[in-house]
C-alpha cells in the first residue's frame, strides 16, 4: 500500500506543478439559474475571445457554500442563487476572506402549479386552496385540527373531486422558500390559521410564519429533491398529481402540462413583470470582487449577463422564460462600477 501512496503522491505533485493558471470563469449554484447562466456562458464564449465559462449546478445553498470557501484560483468566481444571500452566509464568507461581494439581480422567475394535461381540471387555485390541501393543520370551526382532507372538493366545491397528490420542491431548493412564503403563508392568513398561530406563540410573527410552512407528512404531499424533470415524471404517472414548476420549464412542456391560475391570474412573463401573478422571486448571481482582474473575462461575463441584448425584455433569457428586471439599467451601472454589498 505504501507503493500506491507514494506513486499517487508523485503523480499529484507532477501535475500540480504543471497545472496552469485558470483562464475560464467558474460558476456554480442554483439549478433554476443554470439554464440562464448556460445560455449567457455560451453566448459569451461565442462573442468574446475568452473561453466559455463553466457552469455547474447543485442548488443555491451548495453554490454559496462553495463561493464562501475562500479566495483563490481553486474556488469558484460566481455563485448563482435563486434567493438572496443570507446574513449567515455573508458572515461565513467574510470568515473565509471573501469580503467584497458584488450582488447582481438578473430578473424574476415565476413559479407555476401545473398538472397532467389529461387530468382533472385544476385550472384555478387560490393560495388558501394549496394551504388547505397541504398544510399539516387546518382550521375547523375556529380551531386547528390535523389535516384530513382527501380530495380537493373536500374544502372547495369549485375544485374537482380528485385525490390530493402534490409534488413540491424539497427543502434544499430555493424554490421551496418561495412556495412557503408566497403560497403557504398567504393561504395560512386567508384561512385564519395565521392568527391562531399568532395567539399560540404570543404574537410572534416569525414563529407563526414558520408554523404555516409545516406540510402534512401522510404522503399526500411529496418533496421532490431532484429537478423539474422528476416532478414531470411523477405527474406523468399520476393523473391527479399537481406539481410545482418554474415558468420556463412549463413553457417548454406545454404539450404535457396544464397550468393553473393563482388568484385568478395566469402565469406569463407579462403578468409576473407587472406583479399581478403573485408567486415569483428574484434571481441573483454573486461575484467575488477579488477575482476581477485575476480571472480573465470575469467582469466581462458579469457585464454581458446583464446587458440589454441578453437580459433585456427581447433578449434570449426573456425568451427562455426569465422575467426581465425593470431596473436593469441600475444593475448594469452597479456591475460596471463593481459596487459591493454593504
Amino acid at each position: 500500500m505504501s507503493v500506491k501512496l507514494t506513486a499517487s503522491a508523485l503523480a499529484i505533485a507532477a501535475v500540480a506543478t504543471t497545472a496552469a493558471a485558470r483562464d475560464q470563469v467558474q460558476v456554480a449554484g442554483s439549478s433554476t439559474v443554470l439554464p440562464y447562466a448556460s445560455i449567457v456562458a455560451e453566448a459569451f464564449g461565442e462573442n468574446f475571445d475568452f473561453p466559455t465559462p463553466v457552469v455547474e449546478s447543485g442548488g443555491s445553498s451548495a453554490g454559496l457554500k462553495r463561493f464562501c470557501e475562500g479566495v483563490g484560483e481553486n474556488t469558484i468566481d460566481v455563485a448563482n442563487a435563486s434567493r438572496k444571500i443570507k446574513d449567515k452566509e455573508v458572515k461565513a464568507c467574510a470568515e473565509a476572506g471573501v469580503t467584497d461581494i458584488i450582488e447582481v439581480r438578473i430578473g424574476y422567475d415565476g413559479i407555476v402549479f401545473a398538472s397532467q394535461i389529461n387530468g382533472p381540471a385544476y385550472t384555478a387555485f387560490q393560495p388558501v386552496d394549496i394551504f388547505n390541501a397541504l398544510s399539516a393543520k387546518v382550521v375547523k370551526d375556529g380551531a386547528l385540527v390535523e389535516n384530513t382532507h382527501k380530495q380537493w372538493a373536500d374544502f372547495n366545491g369549485d375544485l374537482p373531486a380528485a385525490d390530493i397528490a402534490a409534488f413540491i420542491p424539497g427543502t434544499k431548493h430555493g424554490t421551496r422558500e418561495v412556495f412557503e412564503e408566497k403560497v403557504m403563508v398567504e393561504g395560512c392568513k386567508e384561512a385564519g390559521a395565521f392568527d391562531i398561530y399568532m395567539a399560540e406563540n404570543g404574537g410572534d410573527k416569525k414563529a407563526a410564519g414558520k408554523a404555516c410552512y409545516e406540510v402534512r407528512t401522510d404522503g399526500v404531499s411529496v418533496d421532490i429533491d431532484g429537478d423539474y424533470t422528476e416532478t414531470l415524471a411523477r405527474i406523468d404517472a399520476n393523473p391527479n398529481g399537481v406539481g410545482v414548476f418554474g415558468l420556463a420549464f412549463y413553457e417548454n412542456n406545454t404539450d404535457k402540462l396544464k397550468v393553473a391560475t393563482m388568484g385568478g391570474v395566469a402565469p406569463s412573463t407579462e403578468t409576473i413583470a407587472t406583479g399581478e401573478y403573485p408567486v415569483s422571486r428574484p434571481l441573483f448571481f454573486y461575484v467575488k470582487k477579488a477575482h476581477i482582474g485575476v480571472i480573465p473575462g470575469l467582469k466581462e461575463y458579469a457585464e454581458f449577463f446583464v446587458a440589454d441584448e441578453i437580459a433585456g425584455p427581447d433578449g434570449p433569457l426573456s425568451e427562455y422564460g426569465l422575467v426581465s428586471d425593470p431596473e436593469l439599467a441600475a444593475t448594469q451601472a452597479a456591475v460596471s462600477a463593481e459596487e459591493t454589498m454593504k
Binding site: Q24, Q26, L34, S38, A41, E42, V54, S57
Partner: peptide
C-alpha cells in the same frame, strides 16, 4: 463526478492540447 464539479454546462470547449485535456474543465 458530481462532487468534483464535472456535471453541469461544462463540456463546451475542446481542449487545446494533451496537457490542457487533463486540466481544463
Amino acid at each position: 463526478l458530481l462532487l468534483i464539479g464535472m456535471v453541469g454546462f461544462i463540456a463546451s470547449n475542446y481542449p487545446e492540447g494533451v496537457m490542457d485535456g487533463f486540466v481544463s474543465p
